[in-house]
Design a protein around this nucleic acid. Structure first.
Lengths: 205, 205, 205, 205
DNA sequence: AATGAATGAGCGTTCATTCAT
DNA sequence: TATGAATGAACGCTCATTCAT
């Protein structure tokens, strides 16, 4: 293997560490010096691995998309009923609240970069969203895309409210409520969720 | 006698025009020069009316909170059933989609600015959120705060998805679905909504 | 009398009030707005009476020069011995400490304006200094110009030390010391000072 | 490896070159761009070495205090009598007239900057003045603090008069006069000055 | 590969000055 | 005469980026 492997690997390591940095200060506010300091390298080194701040950010955004959501969502499997699924979702959101808020910050930052937006919207971005919808469908046994969008939007909104400092929102309570409403709304809903067997492998596509 | 200008009124006019400017580029990215250009005044004039960029932004945030909530939501009154209410909400979201997306950008930008965040979270910010929740309660006859948060989060999420370029989301469809789910979930829900008479006046509090 | 008299008079009133303003902040640091506020007029009015900040400052410098020092120095007359004269000088300096420090600030500010410096150095400036030297000669019966310069420099230095925050300097003590030294140094000094009769009128020249 | 530059040394080189720049225009009037130009570096580089204009100025003030006092006054040693000492002082003042005038400008500028005044008056400023007084005492064998202040003020005043363009002042003549006056005033004064052996080392304290 | 010194355009902001009223 | 709104060049300072080492 040529040296390029090490280079690439190191680049990815740096990229990973950038997540928190961008999330905490925002694209516009964080400086390359601060990023370099956070990564424990010099600005020169940073520019050795990334041609520009914009490129670094876009690679980070890419990386987030590429990162397999499967490992994270794996926790949600195993529930026997929809209600249990939703309660697991609530616990999962609580546990990863910080991560989701940061993730949200970064995406929104990204969306304000119009040029890159158009560049990526059609590829990674949309694909990512579709994945989420699919995961929801598989995970919760919701095949109707409108219903999947409903759940997705609701979860987005929960995180957004938290991001806005709304401390009255309780993820567990809200997800439980969603579970109850869905259960009532979907009388045809099977007692046991059988469809989720291949959730993770379905993400590969 | 000086040039005849109603200082306060002109200030508000400028403020209104700032909304789009901030929304399009974000607080951190737009410059005072760009704002001045967008407003067709010099930077000096801009600073004549607003002591700093931060102050300008905060006044804008205030203004949005003060004004739009009541006037905008006024349109949602008049529905006879919850289902109708939700369908009106859907149409309202569609109609003001751009506005809400911009509004969302502005708030999120604001949140990444930590200093102002701490300064305002306790005042305008929280108060605004409480208002929204109250409006939802009054408007849709939902008194349960958990349920109100549910609806609020759902609406937030719809907008966020749109902001993220998710074009598969249909506000009307989604709101209709919410209506159906709520109707099923709340069998005790009265056929006619009577509670909403004083929605707007309740905003005064 | 034409209106110009009022104009001129008002101009001088404004000028007088500028003394403290310039002295406290310095030419470079004070703004025309601050001056206008201190004068209780608008900037427009300020510019109606003075064509520019520089001109205002130069007129002030002129004014200070023109102001008859006689009234102030009059207090120093009446001493019967050199020692008494010097003690009176000490008390006088203590009493007007603030004024002299401000006066010194303004002059030094003025000296840093090279253009105006050259313009005025030869006229008002030098004449002013000669006057001081003359006053010292007449007042203290010191005819030797070197000795007069000595006393002048010493007094300048006392004020400068105070301006620099040296709180250990005691004007009265220092002037008394000067008196003693001069008395010892000038054994031929007459017991009574007779030469000072026309001190004030000599300033007219 | 970075560009090979001794950061500290280069910083001091820049600092030295700043002396004239500040002296000629004054703290308030000179701009960082002008300083950068005078130093033949970019503003960015200037800020790479000094965090702010104020800090640059304070470091300069420090530097002056630390360095010049001892090295400069070293020249004054070696006189056998008070009269000789004073004549050496006169020659020294003539030789360094420009330097002292600039030095005076710098300090006065500094004093009109209130914030820094309060910050430093207690530290560098006062300490510096005390040192000067001590040097005078040691150098001229003057132990009485009132007398030391007298000499200090007189020297300050000489420089101030020169700064004000008074060309009739002759440092040598004036210092010789001071010498004579002191000699007459201090009959107890020893024919040979013995106390000054350790003047310079006394500055260490 | 790695460093950090160097750059300069551009930021938020100020302020002497002008001018419509 | 008097006002204060308006201007824009210039301020102190920042920061993405380049480059000599």
């Amino acid at each position: 293997m040529p040296k390029i492997v090490d280079h690439e690997q190191y680049r990815k390591e740096l990229l990973d560490k950038c997540f928190d940095l961008f999330a905490e200060k925002g694209y516009g506010s964080i400086t390359m010096r601060q990023i370099a300091e956070g990564l424990r390298v010099s600005t020169g080194t940073l520019y050795h691995y990334f041609p520009s701040k914009q490129a670094l950010f876009e690679q980070l955004a890419q990386e987030i998309c590429e990162q397999d959501l499967s490992t994270a969502l794996a926790e949600l499997q195993g529930a026997q009923t929809l209600q249990e699924s939703m309660e697991a979702l609530g616990r999962y959101l609580v546990k990863n609240e910080d991560y989701f808020i940061k993730w949200t910050y970064i995406w929104i930052d990204f969306c304000q970069h119009k040029d890159s937006k158009e560049m990526l919207k059609n590829s990674i971005f949309k694909r990512n969203n579709q994945r989420y919808q699919k995961v929801i469908g598989d995970l919760f046994g919701i095949q109707d895309s409108v219903l999947a969008s409903f759940v997705l939007s609701f979860v987005d909104g929960l995180i957004l409210e938290k991001l806005w400092g709304n401390e009255t929102i309780d993820f567990i309570e809200q997800c439980a409520l969603l579970g109850k409403m869905l259960t009532v709304y979907l009388p045809q809903y099977p007692a046991e969720i059988k469809a989720q067997t291949h959730v993770l492998s379905s993400l590969e596509s």
